Amino acid sequence: MRRAMLLAGILGTLLPGPAQADTDVHYQGLRIPVPAGWEVHHLGPRSTECLRFDRRALYLGPAGEHQLCPAHAVGRTTAIHVEPLTAQTNALVTGLLAGRAETGHPPGLWVRDPAAHEIRIAVPQAGAFITGSYGPSAQDLERVLTHITVDPPPAEGSAERHSGVAHRRSWVRGDGFDTCHAPSLDAMQAWRKHFVAANVYIGGVSRACPDGRLSHDWIAAVRAMGWRLIPTYVGPQAPCGPHRVNFTPDSALDDARAAAKDAVGRARLLGLRRHTPIYYDMEAYHRHDPVCRHAVLDFVDAWTRRVRALGYVPGYYSSVTSGIRDLADAKGIKKPTALWFAHWDKKPDPWEDRYVPRGWWPGHRRIKQYRGDHRETHGGYTLNIDNDAVDGYVR
């Protein structure tokens, strides 16, 4: 993907924005959305984990009696502690019901403590008590708190799911990155605090890096860390592109079907199940060649149909000035469900791009690669990456 944006240029400045993750943690009858970059800590009577409001985190359970806290921890930020209602918290509930409570807010009865920069919520129907902290403004905290919901009771005979069991949607919103090889598990653990999604190249004749660490076990390990993955297949490229392995106008259909079959087979070997999106990486090409353009569209049409027939979700990656524009303008073909477009303008918003109007691929089906090849270091681990703004299909 390093050359995908040669035709689009590099414009603008980096505008970081808040990221929202897709993982809903279930605890004590509540469904709690966990923002991207937050840590989730499970506490308990024997836990020594320090309950701290100076870092963005969700704490589940009662704090232990023997917390190992730093001697000097200063400041507050957005953080949430959820615990069962106890005799102590029930006493606070009584106070809430005595007239200090604000009603009309989900998920329960709110009381604000501006002196402590806290919002406390009693949820009697779930037997839960929530304490949220905030820094200069309570806006981010309120945004999370108002999206906490009470789980419906389990159906008769079904197993109740709670206490940190995550429900995954088919899409995610937040910061992502892609790199040529599968990083070490230590690096993925360190980077998880800053990103919610990562690309993995699962195969293809034009893939530059070998499998390396990529395996069924690697996929399982990083998903257990909370990562959402963007599986990508790099097969033969456009006839008019600057690449060594290309399909031709005559071979486009057969090559696309073969690529789809191979991509799905590799996804299965890696433990990526049915309904997983697989993005075809079509690097930039000279779109003003009509024969080449029609061959690309034939290829994408056949890829989309075959991936869908095999039970997976067809996705497509390309440059906004070639593959994306041609696909959007095309008539009479099957178009991929999910879109990943490259525009290195350093603007991390997949919905405000001058080349990709909002009407194209609406509804959590977009990923924007907004910054190209560079190095970043997080948690002591340096990787060469592209940056992605994700509001699209992942696994």
Rank of each mutant, 00 (worst) to 15 (best):
G372M: 02
N384V: 14
P362K: 08
Q369G: 09
G379T: 12
Y381M: 00
Q369P: 04
E376M: 09
W360S: 03
R358W: 04
H364N: 13
I367C: 00
G380A: 13
N387C: 00
R375L: 08
H374V: 05
G380H: 01
R375G: 10
H378D: 10
W360H: 05
V356M: 03
Y381A: 01
L383V: 14
Y381P: 00
D391M: 08
G379C: 10
R375F: 12
I367W: 13
D388Y: 01
T377W: 01
V356S: 03
R366K: 13
G359V: 04
D391R: 12
Y355L: 06
I367F: 05
Y355E: 15
P357F: 04
Q369Y: 04
H364C: 00
R366F: 00
D386Y: 03
R366I: 04
T377C: 06
E376A: 04
K368L: 08
D386H: 13
T382D: 11
H364Q: 13
P357S: 08
G372P: 03
H378K: 14
G363D: 15
R366C: 09
D391N: 15
G379Q: 06
G379R: 12
W360E: 14
G363C: 08
Y355G: 13
R365M: 00
Y370C: 05
A389G: 14
W361M: 07
Y370Q: 06
I385T: 15
I367S: 09
D386N: 10
D373I: 12
A389C: 10
P357C: 10
R358T: 00
V356Y: 03
V356I: 09
T382H: 07
V390N: 11
I385M: 09
H378C: 02
A389I: 12
N387G: 04
A389N: 05
W361H: 14
R366Q: 03
Y370S: 10
W360I: 15
G379I: 11
P362D: 05
R365F: 02
P362H: 02
R358A: 03
I367A: 08
D391Q: 14
I385E: 04
H378R: 15
D388I: 10
G372Q: 09
R366W: 02
E376N: 01
D388C: 05
R371F: 07
G363Y: 07
R375V: 05
G363W: 10
V356K: 06
E376S: 03
G372R: 03
P362F: 01
T377R: 04
R375P: 00
W361N: 12
Y370T: 06
R365W: 00
T377Q: 06
R375N: 13
